[in-house]
């Protein structure tokens, strides 16, 4: 419990520091950020108005104070190009992103668990070499390229899936997001599969697995109840660690498949110099990563009674 308490505190500190980084981002812009944001055709009066609204006419500490007090009331400023509050805009788009993340985690587990089991059981056999080769290739696959090829094959040539978008219903989401989720799942498959394979191999050699066989359990019971179950702890940890990587992946994949998610919002905001959106998306993503890592820390003990009770 003390460990988890410590994790909560360090997560809170990390979150606070992230707000500072995000706040400071606009001060990295060379020249006057407000003029950059509004472009060349802005009148001096609109520039002055936005400068005041964003607090740039105050000293740095005052600006951060203003930023934080607005943040606590759920206000991340207004988008320049959409003329809307950033917070609502990002949250609205986050749904598609989270759906995509969850979908690809499910797909990658469906792929990774069986292949890791096969590779571990048939260790050093041809099927194991083939799967390990597959992991190696999948890790090197650029998502934007594989996504492009998948669109070409399954959307443009045989019209199995829509080319772009997010769909309107749950089944619509499932169908529209299948190719993007699969694209992301390939890389995750490799990472999870590799890790789970070596975790399984470690567990396969443990005395309690030998004893489970000696006491007369069927091979399948030993494999699923004893080997797989105890290896899943490490998989949960890996998913947690990789989440940041996965969210980063959605930014690219959303762009490839034109999904109206928050990653796409971010990329478009860069081109329209809509810095409040860049700040908003960065902050929301960092918060997500910190929170979900914290959740993994709480889930892990549930999978391993030794940790739970110490």
């Amino acid at each position: 419990m003390r460990y988890l308490g410590g994790r909560c505190i360090s997560s809170a500190i990390a979150l606070l520091l992230v707000t500072f980084v995000v706040f400071f981002l606009v001060h990295l812009i060379p020249g006057d950020p407000v003029s950059v944001m509004l472009g060349q055709h802005a009148t001096p009066s609109t520039v002055a108005a936005l400068r005041h609204a964003m607090g740039f006419d105050q000293p740095l500490f005052g600006q951060y104070w203003l930023f934080m007090s607005k943040l606590f009331s759920g206000n991340l400023g207004d988008s320049i190009s959409y003329q809307q509050p950033v917070f609502g805009l990002v949250l609205g788009r986050l749904q598609a992103t989270l759906f995509l993340v969850a979908y690809s985690i499910v797909l990658s587990l469906l792929l990774a668990v069986p292949s890791a089991l096969i590779a571990a059981v048939f260790r050093e056999k041809p099927v194991d070499y083939a799967l390990r080769m597959g992991f190696l290739v999948a890790i090197a696959l650029p998502s934007f390229w594989i996504g492009t090829l998948l669109i070409y094959q399954f959307s443009l040539k045989i019209h199995l899936f829509p080319v772009a978008g997010y769909g309107d219903t749950f089944t619509g989401h499932l169908s529209s997001l299948f190719l993007p989720a699969f694209t992301l799942a390939l890389g995750q498959w490799a990472i999870l599969g590799r890790n789970l394979r070596s975790a399984l191999i470690d567990v396969l050699q443990l005395p309690y697995v030998e004893f489970a066989r000696m006491k007369g359990l069927r091979g399948s019971t030993v494999l699923f109840r004893h080997v797989l179950r105890t290896s899943l702890g490490s998989t949960v940890t890996i998913i947690g660690i990789n989440l940041s990587f996965l969210i980063a992946g959605t930014v690219v994949v959303e762009h490839v498949f034109s999904i109206p998610g928050s990653g796409n919002l971010l990329v478009n905001a860069v081109f329209s110099r809509d810095y409040p959106i860049v700040q908003g998306v960065t902050l929301v993503y960092a918060t997500l990563v910190i929170l979900i890592n914290l959740v993994t820390d709480f889930v892990y003990p549930a999978l391993d009674p030794r940790v739970a009770l110490t």
């Binding site: 309690y208 030998e210 004893f211 000696m214 105890t230 391993d304």
Partner: peptide, 20 residues
């Protein structure tokens, strides 16, 4: 045969039991 006819116990009992 295992367990029903011939059973076996191991040196270190702590590691012969599945911790979960």
């Amino acid at each position: 045969f295992r367990g029903r006819e011939i059973s076996m116990i191991l040196q270190d009992p702590m590691s012969a039991l599945n911790p979960v």
